[in-house]
Amino acid sequence: MSMVRLASITCFAAVLVVILFAGLRSEPVPQVFNHQDWLHHAAAFAALVCSARLAFPRVQAFWMVLYCLMLALLIELGQGLLPMRTASVGDMVANITGVLIGLMVAGGINRQIATRRVADEA
């Protein structure tokens, strides 16, 4: 396994752990402005999908998106079971937005990598 691949998988694992910890802790993350949590959700799931696409390039995008959306839904449902948390449709919309952003960013990075490989081979 190459160092780049190991770093990609480590990054993905770290993002996943942070999302699970923040999403399932008993108290919500403090907010400075209204709906700041939507920004957190979108950024977290963008980072998750992007790191997943880079760590596991052979997994089809459809499955990656499906797994990430299932994780988002399970976290939201889990929050509904916690006393100081609530499940939110707005949070889920932010999660979906983050997944789509992460998919686009990962696509751009993968195109850059492919372009550099072609240039290096020439």
Score class of each variant (00 low, 15 high):
residue 1 M to Q: 11
residue 1 M to W: 12
residue 1 M to F: 10
residue 2 S to D: 14
residue 3 M to H: 14
residue 4 V to D: 11
residue 4 V to W: 10
residue 4 V to H: 13
residue 5 R to N: 13
residue 6 L to A: 13
residue 8 S to N: 15
residue 8 S to E: 11
residue 8 S to K: 10
residue 9 I to Q: 14
residue 9 I to H: 06
residue 11 C to K: 12
residue 11 C to P: 06
residue 11 C to S: 13
residue 11 C to I: 13
residue 14 A to Y: 06
residue 15 V to T: 08
residue 16 L to T: 07
residue 16 L to C: 11
residue 16 L to N: 08
residue 17 V to L: 10
residue 17 V to K: 08
residue 18 V to F: 12
residue 19 I to V: 13
residue 19 I to E: 04
residue 20 L to N: 08
residue 21 F to Y: 15
residue 21 F to W: 15
residue 22 A to Q: 04
residue 22 A to K: 00
residue 22 A to T: 08
residue 22 A to Y: 02
residue 23 G to E: 00
residue 23 G to D: 05
residue 24 L to K: 07
residue 25 R to E: 13
residue 25 R to V: 03
residue 26 S to N: 12
residue 26 S to Q: 13
residue 26 S to F: 10
residue 29 V to M: 12
residue 29 V to G: 07
residue 29 V to Q: 09
residue 31 Q to H: 08
residue 31 Q to A: 11
residue 32 V to Y: 12
residue 33 F to A: 12
residue 33 F to R: 03
residue 34 N to F: 12
residue 34 N to P: 10
residue 36 Q to G: 07
residue 37 D to P: 06
residue 37 D to S: 06
residue 38 W to S: 07
residue 38 W to P: 00
residue 38 W to L: 14
residue 39 L to C: 09
residue 39 L to E: 05
residue 40 H to S: 06
residue 40 H to D: 05
residue 41 H to R: 06
residue 42 A to Y: 00
residue 43 A to Y: 05
residue 43 A to W: 00
residue 44 A to P: 06
residue 44 A to G: 01
residue 44 A to C: 07
residue 45 F to Q: 04
residue 45 F to R: 02
residue 45 F to L: 01
residue 46 A to Q: 01
residue 47 A to Q: 05
residue 48 L to D: 02
residue 49 V to H: 00
residue 50 C to H: 01
residue 50 C to A: 13
residue 50 C to E: 03
residue 52 A to G: 13
residue 52 A to H: 02
residue 53 R to W: 07
residue 54 L to N: 07
residue 56 F to M: 09
residue 57 P to N: 14
residue 57 P to I: 12
residue 57 P to D: 09
residue 58 R to M: 11
residue 60 Q to P: 09
residue 60 Q to A: 14
residue 62 F to G: 05
residue 64 M to K: 02
residue 65 V to M: 06
residue 67 Y to D: 02
residue 70 M to V: 15
residue 70 M to H: 07
residue 70 M to C: 14
residue 72 A to W: 00
residue 73 L to N: 02
residue 73 L to E: 02
residue 74 L to F: 09
residue 76 E to V: 04
residue 76 E to M: 00
residue 76 E to P: 03
residue 77 L to N: 00
residue 78 G to S: 08
residue 79 Q to E: 03
residue 80 G to K: 06
residue 80 G to W: 04
residue 81 L to R: 11
residue 81 L to E: 11
residue 83 P to L: 09
residue 84 M to I: 04
residue 84 M to C: 10
residue 84 M to N: 15
residue 85 R to Y: 07
residue 86 T to Q: 11
residue 87 A to C: 08
residue 88 S to A: 08
residue 89 V to L: 15
residue 92 M to Y: 00
residue 92 M to K: 02
residue 93 V to T: 09
residue 93 V to W: 01
residue 94 A to D: 00
residue 95 N to H: 02
residue 96 I to W: 05
residue 96 I to G: 02
residue 98 G to R: 05
residue 102 G to I: 05
residue 102 G to E: 00
residue 103 L to T: 05
residue 104 M to C: 09
residue 105 V to C: 06
residue 105 V to E: 04
residue 110 N to S: 14
residue 111 R to Y: 07
residue 112 Q to T: 15
residue 118 V to Y: 11
residue 119 A to S: 14
residue 122 A to N: 14
residue 122 A to H: 14
residue 122 A to Q: 15
residue 122 A to P: 07
